[in-house]
Simulated assay, not measured.
Amino acid sequence: MAQVVPGLEVFLEDPPAWARGVPLGLLCHPASVDRKLRPAAKLVAERLPGQLQVLFSPQHGFLGEKQDNMVASPDFADPRLKLPVFSLYGPRLDPPMEVLQGVRVLLVDLQDVGTRVYTYGATLARVMTAAARAGVKVAILDRPNPIGGLQVEGNILKPHWASFVGPYPLPMRHGFTLGELACYYNATQKLGCDLTVIPARNWRRAEYFDQTGLPWVLPSPNLPTLEGALVYPGQVLLEGTNLSEGRGTTRPFELFGAPFLEPWRILQELRSISPPGVILREAAFEPTFHKWAGELCWGFQLHVTDRWAFKPYYTTLVLLSVIRRLYPDQFSWRQPPYEFEYERLPIDLLTGDGAIREAIDAGHPIPELEAAWQPELEGFLRESQAFRIYH
């Protein structure tokens, strides 16, 4: 099977006419590399000398150094390329119009993880909206969806619950690459962006990242492994609770727990509703930072045994349902603020529908919730076919 070539390299092999001789901007992060792990900013600057004028960064910063949510990245000057870097996460979520108007084309090279709440999609949507107003072309240098492009899961976000962890209606696991998501948003939300996608060569939708031959570079500080990305579409919901999602450990999102959990009791409850494709291994850990820092947490590590059977969103909802029922006085939903939202509950923003939390609080079975959202998910699947670049 031919090795996958990221859109970055496809672009650099033969830059299109619209990219030649014009001022360029680049939105990127540490995972924006070629197959030899060379950074995109350096490669673009060398391939198109004098054209790259400005750099932009998403959440976690241009250098990828910011660990947590709502930790702003400062603007600064890249010391090697001598270019300004403007952060698009923090007090400013949109590119400054006067800066954007200084380029003709904005290149975007970000490694997404196929999950609605991962904020790179929201940043891209805001960039596209601003670019449309400024008359600037946006070109996505596309990369594979690391958790595959065939499986989709979850309820569709309700517009009332739109936020920076979900600007538009979309299921939690959407199956798109970032380039496909950009096309979907541009059309369904009528953003009016002059958009081009440079596809990754040789990628097939059924492939997970470890089948591409590409090197894994953590797309954000708390997704150091592909295994973490596999469980992320579900385990990210723990950010909306007082349970540790494993931040402050070496396996965030795979590990989760709290001092008050009793793993053996939870396993007993799961016997009648065992989530498919995953083994919950009892584990204890002590986070070095974040929730329950320095305290012994009891919980689990998720080991995915069958990627095609595993349903990350369903799995975590089942776990939350059981834990909510077993520990009504100790478990709690996290309170705002969360991702620049100061009033609505984080869990409602994450699920995209406050009715999900209400159903868990009321003890409704998760299989019934899953069955209820299937018709809208099937509608999304039909609609999404028109935006699929890869087969």
Rank of each mutant, 00 (worst) to 15 (best):
P6G: 10
P6E: 00
A17L: 12
W18F: 15
A19I: 06
R20V: 04
G21R: 11
P23C: 04
L24H: 13
R35F: 01
R38Y: 01
P39L: 10
V44A: 08
G50K: 06
Q51Y: 01
L55D: 11
F62A: 02
P74L: 04
P74I: 02
P79Y: 04
L83D: 04
R92E: 00
L93P: 05
L100Y: 14
G102K: 08
L106I: 04
R116V: 05
V117G: 00
Y120H: 10
P144L: 14
I147E: 04
G148F: 02
G149V: 06
G149I: 09
E153V: 10
G154A: 03
L157N: 13
H160F: 12
H174Y: 08
L181A: 05
C183S: 10
Y185C: 06
L191S: 15
I198Q: 06
P215H: 05
W216I: 03
P224R: 07
L226G: 10
G234A: 12
G234L: 05
E239L: 00
G246H: 13
R247V: 00
G248K: 13
R251T: 08
F253M: 03
G257A: 13
P263E: 00
W264M: 12
I266K: 08
A284Y: 14
L302I: 02
H303Y: 04
V304E: 01
V304A: 02
V318F: 01
L319C: 10
V322N: 03
R325E: 02
R334S: 14
E339G: 14
R344W: 01
D348R: 03
D353L: 11
I356T: 14
R357C: 02
E358F: 01
E358I: 01
D361K: 04
H364C: 07
P367V: 09
A372R: 15
L377V: 07
R382Y: 07
Q385K: 15
R388N: 00
